[in-house]
């Protein structure tokens, strides 16, 4: 496959420059790879971030009612502690800062080191670790589940909580609640191409699908023949239902997320099958999102995310937000 050849050394910096120039409400913290709101409100600050290559995550979720800063690392590589520390300092308005961290070894280590450094400076910092990927077994012997597209719901709901003036402890409580109730699983029909090396992240023979992928081009937990789309969607939903004990009359937010190279039309077809399956189970779909929220460069594939709602989460989900990638 042919790809554009941006300068690999300037990929992230050029991307961020283009991004902030396109959205007037955003700015780049000078000398860093941190995207911030052009103006901060007097409230708890929200910072997230991670490796690049997941656009529109995370800079696309910086804005009113969502994140105050997004820290971008190199492609698929967690940002460094001093970059995260710069973001914490910038957004801290004296009400403390919540870090939204996806559960990947590098992200957790770098963000935790930054949190320790900020605490040394007297800034109150809390964290929420998102681990929504049910493809991975939860076990005390491993690092546990990955944080994937469900993180966007944490940005939205914790963001709304901070925006209405909740305390740091309250914003953290709500963020933890979302993290405990969000479940995702994805699959890929093709690997992604790393712009830094021009190489594919894995080889997938024709007619095969990689099930249980993460968002860094890492291979999935298993591989199988491409089944009809209805069956593939069913595989993902079944696992989510099993892990979340979803049942009749539960209310959910549903996200069908494209991995970067799957046409929106196909994502809508996925949504058709996913909603039909949830209807069959008697699960009520309160809100449905279809689009690209957390991608993996040019990977073809999609993920399904289900968030179990209650009245508290519904009102925060519905609260106004103005960030480039939230719709």
């Amino acid at each position: 496959m042919n790809v554009l050849h941006p300068n690999p050394d300037r990929f992230v910096t050029d991307m961020l420059d283009g991004f902030v120039r396109s959205y007037p409400g955003l700015a780049r913290l000078q000398g860093t790879q941190v995207v911030v709101r052009a103006q901060f409100d007097r409230k708890v600050g929200l910072v997230s971030g991670g490796g690049s290559g997941h656009e529109p995550a995370h800079a696309g979720y910086v804005g009113y009612g969502m994140l105050d800063a997004a820290v971008a690392g190199q492609i698929f590589t967690s940002p460094t502690p001093n970059e995260v520390l710069s973001a914490i300092r910038a957004v801290n308005q004296g009400f403390g800062v919540l870090l939204v961290i996806k559960n990947y070894t590098g992200d957790v280590m770098n963000f935790e080191m930054a949190a320790e450094m900020a605490q040394d400076e007297g800034i109150a910092v809390e964290k929420v670790i998102v681990a929504d990927d049910v493809a991975v077994e939860n076990s005390t012997f491993t690092i546990g589940r990955r944080g994937v597209a469900g993180t966007v719901f944490v940005h939205k709901i914790a963001g709304a909580s901070a925006q209405r003036g909740d305390s740091l402890q309250e914003v953290k409580r709500i963020a933890d609640k979302v993290a405990a109730r969000v479940f995702s699983m994805g699959l890929a029909l093709s690997p992604c191409t790393l712009p830094t090396t021009g190489k594919s992240s894995f080889e997938l023979p024709a007619g095969q699908v990689e099930i249980g992928i993460g968002i860094h081009g890492e291979p999935g937990v298993r591989r199988g023949p491409i089944a009809p789309l209805a069956e593939l969607v069913d595989t993902l939903i079944s696992r989510i239902v099993e892990e979340s004990s979803l049942g009749e009359n539960d209310e959910v937010a549903l996200m069908i997320n494209g991995m970067g190279a799957t046409p929106l039309g196909e994502l809508s077809i996925c949504a058709r099958y996913a909603t039909a399956r949830l209807d069959d189970l008697g699960v009520k779909i309160y809100k449905s999102l279809v689009g690209e929220y957390m991608t993996s460069l040019n990977m073809a594939g999609f993920s399904v995310t289900v968030l179990k709602l209650d009245s508290e989460l519904k009102s925060l989900l519905d609260a106004p937000a103005h960030a480039p990638a939230w719709r």
Partner: peptide
């Protein structure tokens, strides 16, 4: 610490 990131950096 200021250049690597990822898991190997820290």
């Amino acid at each position: 610490l200021s250049t690597v990131g990822g898991a190997s950096g820290p």
